[in-house]
Design a protein around this nucleic acid. Structure first.
Lengths: 141, 141
DNA sequence: TCATTAGAGATATAAGGAGTCTCTAATATC
DNA sequence: GATATTAGAGACTCCTTATATCTCTAATGA
């Protein structure tokens, strides 16, 4: 059981977009080069993020993507739900009510999710930005 | 991203074995019937649990499986490690030190694991046993 | 010796992840 | 209005993993 690569790409893309100047658009070409991906592949991921309302797209020449207006509220969990779906990690396949094992697994998953919900992308972006200003080199996300 | 069915089968098998009378052996045949699985498939899972030291096997006629002597200390996480491996759920594939995104993902995973580590199989077994005694019917794990 | 049981290995099938290619639709610029 | 540029949809390929099944071997009690 592992998070897909797509989730990693999505998270990095989101932080990158948050760090852009207000209202500026970034094309999939640039976003793909940054992460050494093919544009068509990344565009599939970007479409998911768009449909989830996390970013906004503008088609046509000089088009591209920008972060959604709700950027101050976007959590890690929001991005992960967009790429991984929001089904639970564990379901007891044996049909009966109130499986005690399932209950434990659900509680554990909830603990992970509550952490991911409390972490906002904008906080990571600001932390990366301040580190970058201090160090003059390196990339922190 | 989901836990494999094998993990579900392993957890149920472990709780079932804990509830057995001391030193009694249960064959893979019985364990498989209980969960509506083929014996050969379940035996692959049982082999993993054996190699992880969570259960002990006795080959030959009248052989079978019993819970390991450390049964009072076996956690959910121990079983999950045996079936799923113990690699982390997320790795930032972009090569650089101290990725802030990775750090958040690791912390979230740690929160889930600490819950799974604190939950012991024997507690679930006892809870299921007492519920079963009270209700006369039904299965609680 | 024989029946019973665990265990190893090869193989089969299906699903999902990862990625490419091609076509369509929208839009700015000339 | 023509053209270049960009997002988006759909079909397709390739690879890995999960989920088994079948067969053979090894150990052991009766």
């Amino acid at each position: 059981m592992r998070y897909s690569n797509a989730t990693n790409y999505a998270l990095h893309t989101m932080v990158h977009l948050i760090l852009q100047p207000r209202e500026s658009l970034v094309g999939v070409q640039e976003l793909a080069e940054m992460q050494h991906l093919s544009p068509t592949y990344l565009s599939k991921i970007l479409t998911k993020l768009t449909k989830a309302g996390l970013i906004e797209s503008t088609p046509g020449a000089k088009g591209g993507y920008k972060i959604s207006r709700t950027k101050h509220e976007i959590s890690f969990l929001d991005v992960i739900h967009a790429t991984e779906g929001d089904t639970s990690l564990f379901d007891c396949s044996i049909h009966h009510e109130g499986c005690l094992i399932e209950k434990v697994m659900w509680q554990a998953e909830e603990n992970m999710k509550s952490e991911l919900k409390s972490k906002l992308l904008i906080d990571i972006a600001k932390e990366a930005e301040s580190k970058q200003n201090g160090m003059a080199t390196g990339r922190f996300f």
